[in-house]
Design a protein around this nucleic acid. Structure first.
Lengths: 199, 199
DNA sequence: GGCACGATGTTTACATGGACTACATTGTGT
DNA sequence: ACACAATGTAGTCCATGTAAACATCGTGCC
């Protein structure tokens, strides 16, 4: 028995809720998410979400956590392998980040808001750190090759990612002053690399 | 008649609402703001806010707008006058930004969220652009003095502010990996200036 | 000076949403 | 086969946002 007769148990309710919540999130913002509305969409009673999430906050946190996981995955894919050219690796990482941010703006906002909250679950912070842990490896390698000044590589990577993060924040609809973010990335990476070049 | 007998008309309700809302914002986050609760705190009926704001969204937008105005003011004060040393001006601007961000984290988050919304009021975008318009002047001057590569100064300033913006986003309680933001600013400005130095 | 009218605040009412409790159904391990 | 945990449901309560009708105030106009 899987479908057809609308079984008493949904089977993948938790998953379905998160999926529907994410849709709502990107459509109407976090404030537009309603547990009852989600339940309605899934054809389920309005109290069933509580079987899977202690409350709305918990669902949002779970959404944020999933976001970080997918984020981590995307950055991990883009991070490349040791031995590849430094600038190329950075560019791929940067594009991956900006791509994610433009595809899921509301989710990203939720992710950071959740992480910043004073009572944020530890898992969120860890997930965030994991996701941002891909770039330092590339920097460390560049340091070993003498292309970049010495120092804590994660601190150098921090500067690059901060810039990208901020760039997206300042943008509106993927553009800043009419210039698409894509076109700014190259410039930023060049400047960053110049700033980090040993002298 | 001013007080004592609790007059029928509050007199500064709009102001008072915004003030109370900002308190609530910084205390419990945007989600914690309730028009009814604000009304209660001000000793006013729960529908009176609608005389001043079309709805909750409108109040939040007004809050964001005020935020941008104060933000603009703070940056304007820090921007300094032409003739001052470039690095010093940048440092002051940067400290002003980070100071604001750490003092009003939830407000800042609200401000950017509001501005990013697809149906964001034009006034918000304008206010945002005004606030970020202080740095380019400093860059232009440095260009004239030959200290910085040529190019659209607002585009150069963008890189610096993006970095600061992102840095704050990545931080937790004013620190990144245990290092206070204060201490990172100098490093970032040095790197940025290096990256922008003509060669 | 008085009065009409708009601005501001109130009262009442309704719909929506989150959370809690008690109950129903299902699958699973023993 | 049966007890039990997991999952879903029904019914309820309370807080909130929004709307419409009404009350009070002050201000400009005659």
């Amino acid at each position: 028995m899987k479908a057809a007769t609308r079984p008493y148990h949904h089977g993948h309710l938790r998953e379905a809720l998160l999926r529907a919540a994410e849709d709502a999130l990107e459509t109407g913002g976090a404030r537009s998410i309603s547990l009852r509305e989600l339940s309605r969409q899934l054809g389920v009673s309005h109290t069933s979400p509580r079987r899977h999430f202690a409350g709305k906050e918990a669902l949002l946190d779970a959404l944020a956590l999933r976001g970080f996981e997918r984020f981590d995955e995307a950055l991990g894919r883009a991070a490349g392998k040791p031995g590849q050219e430094f600038k190329s690796r950075l560019t791929k990482l940067a594009r991956a980040y900006v791509g994610f941010a433009l595809k899921h703006p509301a989710l990203l906002s939720l992710m950071f808001d959740a992480k910043q909250r004073a009572d944020a679950p530890e898992a969120l912070r860890q997930a965030s750190e994991r996701a941002f842990g891909h770039a330092p490896a590339a920097f460390a390698e560049a340091q070993a090759a003498g292309e970049v000044v010495p120092g804590d590589p994660s601190r150098l990577a921090l500067v690059l990612f901060s810039t990208l993060l901020g760039l997206v924040s300042m943008s509106t609809g993927g553009k800043v002053k009419g210039i698409p973010l894509d076109r700014l990335i190259g410039e930023i990476i060049d400047r960053t690399i110049l700033g980090f070049r040993p002298r």
